[in-house]
Simulated scan of single mutants.
Amino acid sequence: MLTIADTLLVAGALGAGFYCYVLSRRLRRFTDLEKGVGGAVAVLSAQVDDLTKTLTQAQTTAKSSVDRLDDVSARAEAAARHLELLVASLHDLPDPSVSKQAENPFFVRRTPNAGSAQ
């Protein structure tokens, strides 16, 4: 009976040892930097770095675009105010058709046969 127990104990130890060996090989492949999750983590880390750089560049570009847009908007508002003043000053000018009538104060009646000899 003692021999059977020892044999089962040795078999269990060998089975546990074999299981640990297989598990260690799987873990080694799992954390491999080229093929396993370690490689995926390394690739993702590089992509995060690239994305961070791209985001920083995009923020810088957007800020400069906003600054330029603010400048152009301010210039447009100033030009609009200037145009409003010019249009307002045009309302003070006399109407050209009224001034032409004022140049000739005499009323001339045309006859219906203005082109024929009288």
Rank of each mutant, 00 (worst) to 15 (best):
E34I: 05
K35Q: 08
K35H: 08
G36K: 04
G36Y: 02
V37L: 14
G38Q: 04
G39N: 04
V41H: 04
A42P: 04
A42Q: 09
V43S: 15
L44F: 10
L44I: 03
Q47K: 12
Q47W: 00
V48L: 15
V48D: 08
D49Q: 11
D50P: 02
L51D: 11
L51S: 15
T52F: 02
T54H: 07
T54K: 13
L55I: 07
L55K: 12
L55P: 00
L55E: 11
T56V: 07
T56E: 13
Q57C: 05
Q57S: 11
A58M: 05
A58V: 07
A58N: 12
Q59N: 10
Q59S: 08
Q59M: 03
T60A: 10
T61D: 12
T61F: 00
T61K: 09
T61M: 02
A62K: 13
S65H: 08
S65G: 05
V66G: 06
D67Y: 01
R68G: 04
R68E: 12
L69R: 08
L69C: 06
L69K: 08
L69T: 12
L69G: 09
D71Y: 06
D71T: 15
V72C: 00
V72W: 04
V72R: 06
S73P: 01
R75N: 14
R75I: 02
R75D: 13
A76V: 11
A76T: 14
A76E: 07
E77F: 02
E77V: 06
A78H: 06
A79V: 03
R81E: 12
R81V: 15
H82A: 13
L83N: 15
L83G: 04
E84Q: 12
A88H: 05
A88C: 02
S89M: 04
D92A: 13
D92G: 05
L93H: 06
L93I: 01
P94Y: 06
